[in-house]
């Protein structure tokens, strides 16, 4: 009865989860994306290190618990050693060793934080403004600016009892009418603010998230790898009202030359 008392729920839970998964669709979705920027890859690496360390500590800790529960069962005749009350050396050990592990975890994160805060050498500044419930993008110094809203197809499908099956909509809830276009291989400074309430701008593949606060500007930088042009999707990441879940972010990263051409086209259209 006592044996495997906690193996059972974990196994049962695992079976329940596995049994319901069709093919490999869900397996892709077990972990953070590596992403397409220097920062996203570093963050992924940090995350994986943390995960492995926690897993290792878990194996040791849970292992000790399971051994205790099995070896010292009353039903198998274990007799309690009521004199085993304290051990100062053990207490010191399991205070100091975890502290050292934590310091070890903290050190790499410092260097990454400094990199995240370093916005020098940027080639382009884009001002991002959060609205209820859409984004506004402005390419500073060019006069190019536009709103970016949830695409019409998604918007129709997401209405309550719309009768439209979300799986028939391309990039359901992650498509907009005017995506943000950026060059690859360039450090881009993003300025974030909001028009009404707090929003947050987040694209998982870029590894960066920052709040957009009305009345103030925040900044962050991204740099999409030169060899990774493409379309990247994210969402608002701060509760901002009814349609918080319906103001996605779509970024199209183009090689520099293509980007310049696109920008020139937009500037011309503004005139």
């Amino acid at each position: 009865m006592a044996k495997r008392k906690f193996m059972l729920p974990s196994i049962a839970g695992a079976i329940a989860t596995v049994a319901a998964i069709p093919a490999h669709a869900a397996w892709d979705l077990l972990n953070m994306p590596r992403g397409v920027t220097v920062l996203s890859r570093e963050i992924y690496g940090m995350h994986m290190i943390m995960l492995w360390i926690c897993l290792a500590i878990a194996v040791v800790t849970f292992g000790a618990m399971i051994v205790a529960m099995i070896r010292f069962r009353k039903s198998k005749g274990a007799v309690a050693d009521t004199k085993l009350l304290h051990n100062a050396r053990l207490e010191a050990a399991w205070t100091i060793v975890p502290t050292l592990i934590l310091i070890g975890m903290a050190i790499p994160s410092v260097e990454k934080l400094i990199k995240i805060e370093d916005t020098t050498g940027s080639e382009l500044t884009i001002k991002v403004t959060g609205y209820q419930w859409q984004w506004h993008y402005e390419y500073l110094g060019t006069g190019v600016s536009f709103f970016s809203r949830l695409s019409r197809e998604s918007d129709l499908a997401r209405q309550r009892a719309s009768g439209i099956d979300p799986s028939t909509v391309d990039h359901y809830l992650l498509e907009v009418d005017h995506p943000l276009v950026v060059p690859t291989g360039a450090k881009i400074r993003l300025l974030l603010t909001a028009n009404d309430v707090i929003h947050a701008w987040w694209v998982p593949e870029f590894g960066m998230k920052r709040d957009a606060i009305p009345g103030f500007i925040n900044e962050m930088w991204i740099s999409v790898d030169e060899d990774q042009p493409g379309t990247y999707r994210g969402q608002c990441a701060e509760l901002c009202g009814a349609d918080h879940g319906f103001m996605p972010i779509v970024v199209v990263a183009k090689p520099k030359a293509e980007f310049q051409a696109w920008l020139a086209e937009q500037e011309a259209a503004q005139l």
Binding site: M69, F72, R73, A78, L84, L90
Partner: peptide, 13 residues
């Protein structure tokens, strides 16, 4: 760790 050590060399039901 202390909770685990409480179980250690105990008589658990």
């Amino acid at each position: 760790f202390n909770w685990t050590a409480t179980m250690w060399r105990g008589s658990i039901s």
